[in-house]
Design a binder for these strands. Structure first.
Lengths: 122, 122
DNA sequence: CAGCATCCTGGGCGATACTG
DNA sequence: CAGTATCGCCCAGGATGCTG
């Protein structure tokens, strides 16, 4: 859990979701876990841009927020598996909708984002 | 537009949406504009926790990403109105779904979030 | 009323290295 | 294979004050 000093404002549903989903890789984690990629190394491979440290941190937060559960198998070598809780599963349709919207508008979005990036260059 | 140095990875729809919606108040801005609160001062009043500066910054990004459009009326005192573009409107159902999920699970979420906050304290 | 400039800081996140 | 500790960067966003 990140050491947040200030208490966030939780005025509406948007705020609440923002809190739980706040983290660069959380939606992706939920998504991939739902897809059946449950082991840390597997998730790491799916999200190579993220560091293991942050992946673990965010996984921990997702656990604390009861969106995922973690099972540790007492074997050698160590084996760990994450799963979505029912609560977490209930978020999947929304994440799917977001991803779908993004995919449907991928070309336009890419263009706009790139344009935005170069704007400050000149 | 924030002066981002590093080029973001845009691997999937989730990334793309993440880019356009990245900003503490963007979803709320889109939401309130859709609700008919179009003027800066009005939005400010709706989102008192945000500073005017950041509101303007994010509004500008939303414009650059063609989610909202801005109309400046040449009158005194100055009058400005924001509206959603068709593109922006197409995001509303998703934002609504997110807010709804948050509202539906408000009690549980609040509890979990608060618990998470106090955890590092001890 | 609307918008910009300046200064400042918190904390998210990456890199690396070490333990079991 | 899984997880933690340390270090440091960087930039989003808050506060304040000035312009038209």
């Amino acid at each position: 859990m990140y050491k947040r000093k200030i208490v966030p404002n939780l005025n509406c549903g948007l705020d609440l979701v923002g809190e739980v989903l706040y983290g660069k890789w959380k939606m992706r984690l939920l998504w991939f876990i739902d897809q059946g990629h449950k082991r840390p190394s597997e998730l790491q491979r799916k999200i190579p841009d993220a560091s293991r440290r942050v992946l673990n941190l965010q996984l921990k937060e997702l656990q604390d927020h009861e969106l995922v559960s973690k099972v540790i198998y007492p074997v050698v070598p160590p084996k760990v598996e994450y799963s979505l809780t029912a609560f977490g599963k209930s978020l999947i349709p929304i994440i799917a909708a977001i991803g779908e919207w993004g995919d449907n508008n991928a070309d336009r979005l890419k263009e706009l984002i790139i344009k935005g990036l170069s704007e400050d260059g000149e």
